[in-house]
Design a binder for these strands. Structure first.
Length: 362
DNA sequence: ATCGTAACGGTTGAA
DNA sequence: CCTTCAACCGTTACG
């Protein structure tokens, strides 16, 4: 569990096998790319394998998000509140009903289709765990209903980030402290399968933005430590070497998630369906990969209300920013809006991070 | 020299 | 609880 600190790659960079690169680095990669620095140079500067740089940039271009995908977990949950509700009903109407019969009914009633119908074992578990004794169903009913929305949406929340801080999707694990009901945030919440319920948004955002939660409530921190220490060792302060200033990184690493830079960037992936900016009318099919679209989607959501987030580093509002090579090989459909934002971000970025880099270091 | 990507060993978390 | 399994990760190596 502990000391997984990090390994050193061929470039001398530190990484934790199996874990995503700190957001600070991811962000940096995108920033540098936007400044027109070539991937190979970025790779060298940040000491991140070019494969990784390539991947991150590719994903960024596609989804607009610098965030890693959702690690772990299972496929889109099948036991949605609605399904559970139906199962409960079936059970109530016929206490002796078998799980397989319930399954059939779910299909028959169109509650599920063959692709998302829960397995018999899942149904059994649901019966056992979520429904349990039907003796006093009504009692729970309402509560559950509401609860279900929140609780049954583990996918929403900030799930996407498997980062320590972003962590604890269901809020159950860490119990986000009474925390600040943070409201706005840039977070991409959700994998929003069933639907991006507000509740989840809130939860997600909260966990996400709440420093307390991030800081790791008591007891929990192993991961954080990993990241922290990793970040430290990983980027020994060759100060300007990489054109990044240590403090920025430092903080970023500590609070990979929300804290600052990132939060501003995260929303970057805010185009997509719910895109209220009309910033990018990107092809919905562009980020088809189920693993991604949720990210972007939610991001925009949060960003909308996230105006209030304060970032020590300065604010960068850029709902969507695509690679914007300082040159002119525009790859993305330029939109005045985008441009403007990009510009903004650009300025912000450069000033914020003091990205003064010599295009190549070696 | 670059860059895209498959293979690989790893972690995570819902079921 | 514990196990499975599929999702993702970053590095490495190859083309």
């Amino acid at each position: 569990m502990e000391q997984t600190y990090g390994e050193v790659n061929q470039l001398g960079g530190v990484f934790v096998n199996g874990r995503p690169l700190p957001n600070a680095i991811r962000l940096r990669i995108v920033e540098l790319a936007q400044l027109g620095i070539r991937p190979c140079d970025i790779s060298r500067q940040l000491r991140v394998s070019h494969g990784c740089v390539s991947k991150i940039l590719a994903r960024y271009n596609e989804t607009g998000s610098i965030l890693p995908g959702a690690i772990g977990g299972s496929k889109p949950r099948v036991t949605t509140p609605n399904v559970v509700k139906n199962i409960r009903e079936y059970k109530q109407n016929d206490p002796g009903i078998f799980a397989w019969e319930i399954r059939d009914r779910l299909l028959a009633d169109g509650v599920c289709d063959k692709y998302n119908v829960p397995s018999v074992s899942s149904i059994s578990r649901i019966l056992r765990n979520k429904i349990g004794n039907l003796s006093q169903p009504t009692q729970h009913e309402s509560a559950k209903q509401a609860h279900a929305q929140a609780a049954a949406l583990p996918y929403n929340h900030i799930y996407p980030y498997s980062y320590p801080n972003a962590m604890s999707p269901p809020g159950a694990k860490m119990g986000n402290p009474h925390g600040v009901p943070v409201t706005g945030g840039h977070v991409s919440i959700s994998r929003a399968w069933p639907s991006p319920h507000t509740v989840s948004n809130i939860l997600g955002i909260r966990a996400f933005m709440d420093p307390t939660a991030i800081a790791g409530p008591d007891g929990y921190t192993p991961k954080m430590e990993d990241w922290t220490s990793m970040g430290r060792t990983a980027f020994p302060p060759p100060h300007a070497v990489n054109g990044m200033d240590k403090s920025a990184i430092d903080s970023d690493v500590k609070y990979p998630q929300p804290s600052c830079t990132l939060s501003s960037y995260v929303p970057a992936c805010a185009y997509s369906p719910s895109n209220q900016y009309g910033v990018y009318s990107g092809p919905p099919g562009g980020y088809v990969s189920p693993g991604h679209h949720w990210q972007s989607q939610s991001a925009s959501l949060s960003h909308a209300g996230g105006g209030g987030v304060t970032m020590h580093a300065g604010e960068i509002h850029a709902p969507m920013v695509f690679k914007h090579p300082p040159r002119d090989e525009d790859r993305k459909p330029p939109s005045p809006l985008i441009k403007q934002q990009q510009q903004q971000q650009h300025e912000a970025l450069s000033s914020v991070h003091g990205l003064s880099l010599s295009t190549s270091s070696s």
